[in-house]
C-alpha cells in the first residue's frame, strides 16, 4: 500500500508520512496476529465427533492485560501525534515572517488566488488576482489566507500532505514550505456542487530565480 502514497514535497510532510508508516506497521502486525490466531483457532478447535468444547467463562487477568496494553499503545500514538498536528495546523506555531502571503478563495468551481502585491496589503490597487494558478518559490514559507465565496470547499495538495476546508465568511490560515519545484494539482476535496469533480487549481513551485522573474513580470 505504501508505494501508492504520492511523493512528498513539503517540510512537514515527512512527519505525516512517518506517522502513517508507523501506524501501517503497527496495524499490520496486529492484523497478522489477530487473523493468525483466528485461523489457528478455526482449524484447531473445529468440531470433531466425540470432542466437547471446554467450559471457559473468561479470564480477568487477560481482560486487564489487553485493556491496559491497548490503552498504552493508543495513548502513546496520540502523544507522538500532537506535535505534528500543532506544527501543521496551529496558527500560533506557524513559522513567522512568511516569504509569501496569498489569499485563496474557493468559488463554485474555481480557486481564486489574490496576491497582495509589493505593498503587502490586500484590497489595494496592486493586488493580483489569478484563477486556479498559485505561484510560490521553493524552500520558502508560504502563508495562505483561506476562505470561500459560497459553499464549503477544501484546499487539498496531496504532495504537500495538506488539506483544509475553506468556509464562507471565515479566514483560516494555512502554511507550507515546498521542498521541490514543480507543478502540482490543487483539487477541491469537499463536495461543493455539480462541478465539484474537476474543480482543480495548480500550485506552481518555482525555483527562486524563476519566481523572481515571475514577480518581476507581474509588478514591473
Amino acid at each position: 500500500m505504501l508505494q501508492w502514497l504520492p511523493e512528498n514535497v513539503s517540510t512537514f510532510g515527512q512527519g505525516v508520512d512517518n506517522l502513517f508508516y508507523g501506524i501501517y506497521y503497527l496495524t499490520l502486525v496486529v492484523f497478522i496476529l489477530v487473523m493468525g490466531t483466528l485461523i489457528v483457532f478455526l482449524i484447531k478447535y473445529r468440531h470433531q465427533e466425540g470432542k466437547r468444547a471446554d467450559y471457559i467463562e473468561g479470564s480477568t487477568t487477560l481482560e486487564i492485560v489487553w485493556t491496559a496494553a491497548t490503552t498504552v499503545i493508543v495513548f502513546g500514538l496520540a502523544m507522538l501525534s500532537y506535535p505534528q498536528w500543532n506544527n501543521i495546523k496551529s496558527p500560533t506555531q506557524f513559522p513567522d515572517n512568511p516569504d509569501v502571503v496569498v489569499q485563496v478563495s474557493g468559488k463554485q468551481f474555481n480557486w481564486d488566488m489574490t496576491y497582495p502585491g509589493p505593498d503587502n496589503e490586500l484590497g489595494t490597487d496592486d493586488d493580483l488576482k489569478l484563477e486556479n494558478e498559485l505561484h510560490v518559490p521553493v524552500n520558502a514559507v508560504v502563508h495562505i489566507r483561506l476562505t470561500s465565496e459560497d459553499v464549503i470547499h477544501s484546499f487539498f495538495v496531496p504532495q504537500l500532505r495538506l488539506k483544509q476546508d475553506s468556509l464562507p465568511n471565515r479566514f483560516i490560515n494555512v502554511w507550507f514550505e515546498a521542498t521541490k519545484a514543480g507543478r502540482y494539482e490543487i483539487p477541491c476535496a469537499e463536495l461543493c456542487g455539480f462541478g465539484h469533480s474537476g474543480m482543480l487549481g495548480y500550485l506552481n513551485v518555482h525555483t527562486q530565480e524563476s519566481y523572481d522573474a515571475w514577480v518581476q513580470e507581474r509588478w514591473p
Binding site: L38, H47, D54, I56, T70
Partner: peptide
Amino acid sequence: MLIAVPSAIKTFNWLGTMFRGAIKF
C-alpha cells in the same frame, strides 16, 4: 483513539470464545 480499547476487548473476547471450542462451520 480510546475507542480502540473497548473494540479490542470485544475482538479478543470473540477469539477467546472460539478458543478450545468445538466450532461448527
